[in-house]
Amino acid sequence: MLIPDIRTAALLGSYDNRDEYQIDQTLVWVCFDSRATRDAYTAAAFHQLPSILQAIPAVIEEAVACLREHSPDFWRLHDLAGTSPDLLSVWGIWVYPPSCHASFHVNENHDFEPPEGAQLPSLDEMDGVHVARSGDGVIKIER
């Protein structure tokens, strides 16, 4: 995955406490305390992004474990169909540069297509999960 230089990249949106970017199909918000800290936080986030993006497989693994516990019938059907490895993706990442913390919103993969003719359930948009990656790389479900 090519990581754009967010320090000079075009913004999708800019708000009082965050800037919004898109990396591939994932939205990324860089959060800051005030406009005065914006440039410094954006520069820090640029340097943190490689490790944050490398954590995506572990983040999805954590999300799967959580969602399997809450929706066992859903996962059983997808396991039987062999589709469970492709079901989830990261929709958005909130980056908090001072602490190197990132929060990932994980939900059903937009690109997932069930096998032709398969009658498989979908996740409700509200069934997504938020997974945190701490500054020291620990990954856990956010409650």
Rank of each mutant, 00 (worst) to 15 (best):
L11D: 00
V131R: 06
V28W: 06
I141V: 15
C100D: 15
E142L: 15
L12Y: 08
T37L: 09
C66E: 15
D5L: 10
P57Y: 02
L53C: 04
A44Q: 15
E20S: 13
D127H: 12
M126T: 06
R143K: 09
T83N: 09
P97K: 03
H105I: 10
N17R: 14
W94V: 03
R7Q: 11
A36I: 05
Y96T: 12
P121I: 10
I6S: 06
H78R: 05
E125I: 10
L27V: 13
F32M: 01
I23F: 07
L2E: 14
M126S: 14
Y15P: 08
G137W: 04
F74Y: 13
Q119C: 09
Y15S: 11
D136A: 05
L120E: 06
T83L: 01
D16I: 03
A118N: 03
L53A: 05
L67V: 04
E108L: 10
V28N: 07
E61H: 11
L27T: 14
G128Q: 06
H130L: 11
D39F: 01
D124L: 12
P97M: 02
P50R: 08
H47T: 12
G137V: 05
F112A: 01
G13K: 01
S103A: 12
L11I: 00
Q48D: 12
Y41H: 15
I56K: 13
A55T: 10
D127M: 15
L2I: 11
I52E: 09
A58G: 09
D73W: 00
I141H: 04
G117F: 04
A9K: 06
P50F: 12
A36W: 01
D124F: 12
Y41E: 14
C31W: 13
G13W: 02
N109A: 04
P98Y: 07
L11S: 09
V30K: 03
R68Q: 15
T26E: 02
T8H: 06
N109P: 05
S34Q: 10
A43T: 11
A63D: 08
L49P: 05
E61A: 14
P121E: 01
V95W: 05
L49H: 05
H70E: 13
E20M: 06
